[in-house]
Write a protein that binds this DNA or RNA. Structure first.
Length: 644
RNA sequence: GGGCGCGUAGCUCAGUUGGAUAGAGCAUUAGCCUUCUAAGCUAAGGGUCGCAGGUUCGAGUCCUGCCGCGCCUACCA
């Protein structure tokens, strides 16, 4: 609503300026910081002053006098050195909010968002949570704008990390596949692997000769036969299930899990290899340190670097980047091959998750064939992402290269204080650092499920003391919703390039700029309606009891108008956040919206309001706020509890 | 060495393609529960936006240089 008005005004000024002065400038529309200056502000006169060599103030008065009436605009005035401030027709504005036009569904192509991508060899940690929550929220943002989105979660089930855990079971622990299977049926297999991974890594360090285990395990896994391969499947499959379960606690779901094993078995890489060779995107290096390797020239992906990137090692095996190029080509439907698929699980709502298979397994939905791809991967992988895009470009897929977006974000690290909380000894050197990097190899990190459990316990103490009469199950459910709200908001409120130095104190806070603060506002709005029903009052019929003139009368109050205006900008905020690729902006909007509502709530006792028209209006405002809060929270993946 | 990012209140962070008096939260201080739930509200203090230049009507935002911090720069993924 607000945005379309903004566009109308923008176009009107631009056209008028072109017709009147013959100058084609791009007119900028701003929102004045001070509410007294109206709702929109046009600084175009400053820009024109330069072209016309006339004082901005004079031009501004000409514009205002000559542009005529604009729809939805009540008044225009000149302020400061030449700003044109615009005041909207409040009643007309509210009228549109009450009868919103149907949103159009985008007919554009499918967007693929790839996120989570956790190595299936250990429990998920907070760093993985940032990835998943960022990706999931961006998906929700895109979908709210009518986009068709497919969520992919890439599973590297044949890589070194899985191999190291397999080696740990086989060589270090001397476990048979059956014994590992028995262990995997224990509740915390992902935690067990977390420790084993750290132990195996330490063992490599202490006894470097045991690194031979890794090579042997990788071969075993690749051959697909024998104990090592069997343990490999057991570990990867059962850890993937654990990750899906962890992510579901946060409301994060997927459509398809493409696996590295199928990239290899279905010869995706072989196909990409041929394409790359044909296009001369890679060449066989004859001399130097990379002799015998197929490399991509540095010039393709980096302006300055002289280091070519090895795609195929001298022993003939492909690097991770090579496989990633093949995968990226498939996402766009450029590889000329497709996976087979089988259904992995269905969520309670019926939504199905599919996983790739290496042999036909019946009918399946269409996957891939994206027109745009977002890869949610942390910023440390920028170099590799550049190589992948360069690969696409070299193959002549210029358009797809431009639609390959590295949705990067900074890591989650541990604050020094957090390390102390976890009982981790820090070296003198580390203690001086602003934050400590999480390391799966060292077992250094905060496990996702541990953190969620801790959040739930914290919330439960509060819920139990506020609502002792409710059942323990209900209390736990509410606490869980609050915990997830707190966690998702915490991970989303930082902009992508900001390193999160994780700190239990801040993550466990439910006050101030937090998820529960926003949830609380939504709960309060609902409580008003509930209280009214309890008192036997019916919800008024707004169309009958609140005609346009009445809304106009009430909106004459500056407070009401400003509040309504703020609440009506939800769509605009999400749209801008999508354009900026920044979920944090949605989080911030949600917080501001909640602040505005809390203000409204505190300032105007609604049920006790004696004036009928005003009371009905206040109820309508409450209902509008509630709707906007619910919608915005849903985009953030945060549920509104029944009570708090 | 090169590339990317960061430096804004005591702390943690926002700040859209340059706009009017630089904003939140936490912490501190002082108030507000007989009212639709105080996970809330009101108010106060707290800033040479790393430093130095430049561009212009206007710079936290753009350009250059410098200082400090982090990440990347593998035949690991």
């Amino acid at each position: 609503m607000f945005q379309s008005l903004e566009k109308t005004v923008q176009r009107a000024f631009q056209d008028h300026i072109l017709a009147r002065y013959g100058v084609a400038i791009s007119v900028v529309i701003e929102q004045p910081k001070q509410t007294g200056f109206g709702e929109l502000s046009v600084p175009a006169a400053f820009l024109l002053a330069k072209h016309l060599k006339q004082p901005p103030k004079k031009i501004a008065s000409e514009l205002v006098a000559e542009i005529g009436n604009l729809p939805g605009v009540a008044a225009m005035e000149i302020a400061g050195g030449g700003y044109i401030n615009i005041r909207l027709d409040r009643a007309a504005y509210a009228e549109v909010l009450r009868h919103p036009p149907n949103a159009d569904v985008s007919s554009a192509g499918k967007i693929v968002v790839e996120h989570t991508n956790i190595n299936p060899n250990k429990a998920a940690h907070i760093g993985h949570l940032r990835n998943a929550v960022l990706g999931d929220t961006f998906v929700r943002m895109l979908r709210s704008g009518g986009q068709r989105v497919e969520v992919q979660n890439y599973i590297d089930n044949t890589g070194v990390q899985v191999a190291d855990v397999v080696a740990g079971f086989h060589f270090l622990e001397k476990k048979t596949p059956d014994e590992v299977r028995a262990l995997s049926e224990e509740t915390r297999f992902d935690f067990l692997c977390w420790d084993l991974y750290a132990r195996t890594s330490q063992n490599y360090k202490d006894n470097p000769e045991t690194l031979a285990w890794r090579a042997e395990t990788l071969h075993g896994i690749e051959s697909g036969m024998g104990d090592l391969a069997e343990i490999g499947h057991l570990v990867a499959d059962s850890i993937v299930q654990a990750h899906l379960k962890t992510m579901l606690r946060l409301g994060v779901t997927y459509d398809v899990l493409p696996r590295e094993s199928e990239i290899l078995h279905l010869k995706f890489w072989a196909a990409a290899y041929d394409l790359l060779k044909q296009a001369k995107a890679i060449y066989l290096e004859m001399e130097g340190k990379n002799a015998g390797c197929w490399v991509m020239p540095a010039a393709a992906f980096s302006a300055d670097s002289e280091d070519n990137k090895v795609i195929v090692r001298s022993n003939g095996t492909v690097t991770y980047v090579g496989k990633d190029i093949a995968y990226q080509l498939w996402k766009f439907g450029l590889l000329g091959k497709d996976f087979f698929y089988r259904k992995l699980i269905a969520y309670d709502d019926g939504h199905e998750v599919w996983v790739t298979a290496d042999h036909p397994a019946g009918p399946h939905p269409d996957f891939g064939h994206a027109t745009r791809v977002y890869n949610v991967i942390d910023v440390r992988q920028s170099y590799l992402q550049d190589v992948v895009v360069a690969g696409l470009k070299a193959l002549g897929a210029k358009a797809q290269a431009e639609e390959s977006i590295h949705f990067s974000y900074e890591m989650v690290a541990l604050s020094p204080r957090c390390c102390v909380d976890l009982g981790i000894d820090l070296s003198e050197e580390d203690r001086k650092r602003p934050y400590i990097e999480v390391s799966g190899r060292k077992g250094l990190g905060v496990k996702a499920d541990d953190l969620i459990d801790k959040l739930i316990e914290t919330a439960l103490r509060e819920v139990a003391s506020r609502h002792p009469e409710d059942s323990p199950e209900k209390q736990r459910h509410i606490s869980s919703q609050i915990a997830i709200g707190a966690l998702r908001y915490f991970l989303l409120k930082y902009t992508r390039p900001t390193v999160i130095a994780f700190d239990f104190g801040e993550a466990l806070s439910f006050e101030g700029e937090t998820g529960p603060y926003v949830q609380y506002a939504a709960v309060r709005a609902r409580n008003i309606m509930r209280k009214m029903a309890e008192r036997g009052e019916a919800m008024p019929d707004f169309t009958a009891e609140l005609p346009r003139e009445a809304v106009g009368r009430q909106l004459a109050s500056e407070d009401f108008w400003q509040m309504l205006l703020a609440a009506s900008k939800a769509d605009t905020a999400v749209e801008k956040a999508v354009a900026a690729g920044e979920p944090a902006h949605v989080a911030r909007f949600a917080f501001q919206l909640a602040q505005t509502f809390n203000n409204f709530y505190h300032q105007f006792p609604i049920l006790a309001e004696p004036d009928r028209e005003k009371k009905v209006f206040l109820l309508w405002m409450t209902e509008y706020f509630r709707l906007q809060l619910d919608r915005t929270l849903a985009i953030l993946g945060i549920e509104v509890p029944d009570f708090m």
